[in-house]
């Protein structure tokens, strides 16, 4: 466990210092790149709460990325730039949608659960495409980023970076606390054995639904940050391949491990950036290599990348 802790601290220190190094060497692009990766890491963290600990394989998690984004973009479109209000609407709307989707979906299990969550997100995706007033498929340009008063200026690349960084660390901690609470025990227990959970006097349904709503709301925050990052929104935020990508980050990093989702987001997105920028055959056919990489990880790193870290065997 000590080795893991050291690695975690090194990782956090690296992310905390990265903007300073990038600024010193006049390579500001890396601030943007890492910020985008961390936003996806936040989405992956939220998915891990239900997928990793609760065993709810949601194939529609990008829905909340979209709803968080639309909350900001639609309000901004009507001239409301108050970032706190936007955040409140983003979280509230995501939670509400998660409540509706969850209430229906959690009655099913296994592949049926995967498919019904996908179905709901597809509906939202096609809804987004037909929202003519808000750009339809072309999407909406954010006239101004969310105004967070004097707190953080999102137009400032570095300040925005540290906000995303702080949210990521806060969510990491929050999920840690949730998982180890009494509530978290029920969620984890219902994952490993639903019948036993019932037998000891818990009906898992409300607990699972609550976790589903929390995860949706957290991903809504990721959507809020993402639309401010791109300053642009399209229904593509909710495309099913996007849900898949978030899921792969979780699996790749190691499901049900605390830092796994962050690791998965970093490796997948940075590898994508690395390979697509190469010249020649690799650059032109980089998806071939991403594909092979995914297959090999599954075949040889059974517990995801986090499983390769020292001290992993003794963990849970």
């Amino acid at each position: 466990m000590r080795a893991r802790l050291v690695l975690l601290i090194v990782g956090i220190a690296f992310l905390a210092l990265a903007p300073l190094v990038a600024t010193a060497f006049d390579q500001l692009f890396y601030i943007d790149l890492l910020r985008r990766v961390m936003i996806f890491a936040i989405a992956a963290l939220s998915l891990n709460l239900i997928l990793g600990y609760g065993g709810m394989v949601s194939f529609g998690h990008a829905a909340y990325l979209g709803i968080g984004g639309y909350a900001v973009a639609i309000l901004a479109h009507h001239g409301i730039h108050n970032g706190f209000l936007q955040l409140g609407v983003a979280v509230g709307a995501s939670a509400l949608v998660a409540l509706v989707i969850g209430a229906i979906s959690i009655r099913t299990s296994g592949i049926y659960f995967i498919m019904i969550t996908l179905a709901f997100t597809q509906m939202l995706y096609f809804l987004g495409i037909s929202l003519d007033a808000y750009g339809g498929d072309d999407g909406l340009r954010l006239a101004a980023r969310s105004d967070l008063g004097g707190l953080v200026d999102l137009g400032n690349s570095t300040a925005f970076y540290y906000l995303v960084f702080a949210v990521m660390i806060a969510f990491l901690y929050l999920i840690h606390r949730i998982v180890n609470s009494r509530f978290g025990m029920v969620i984890r227990a219902s994952n490993s054995n639903e019948a036993r959970t019932r037998a000891i006097g818990f009906s898992p349904y409300p607990y699972r639904l609550a976790a589903f709503v929390i995860a949706g709301a957290m991903c809504g925050v990721a959507g809020y940050l993402f639309v401010n990052h791109t300053a642009y929104l399209t229904p593509d935020f909710m495309h099913w391949t996007r849900s898949g990508e978030i899921m792969f980050m979780v699996i790749l990093g190691g499901i049900g491990t605390s830092v796994g989702p962050i690791l998965g987001a970093f490796v997948l997105l940075l590898l994508e950036d690395l390979l697509s920028g190469m010249t020649g055959f690799v650059g032109q056919h980089w998806q071939l290599f991403i594909g092979l990489f995914l297959v090999l990880v599954v075949l040889f790193a059974k517990r995801g990348l986090a499983g390769l870290l020292p001290g992993a065997q003794r963990n849970d």
Binding site: D273, L274, G277
Partner: peptide, 8 residues
């Protein structure tokens, strides 16, 4: 030219 992007 397309410089290799580095990540670690």
């Amino acid at each position: 030219r397309n410089p290799v992007r580095l990540f670690s």
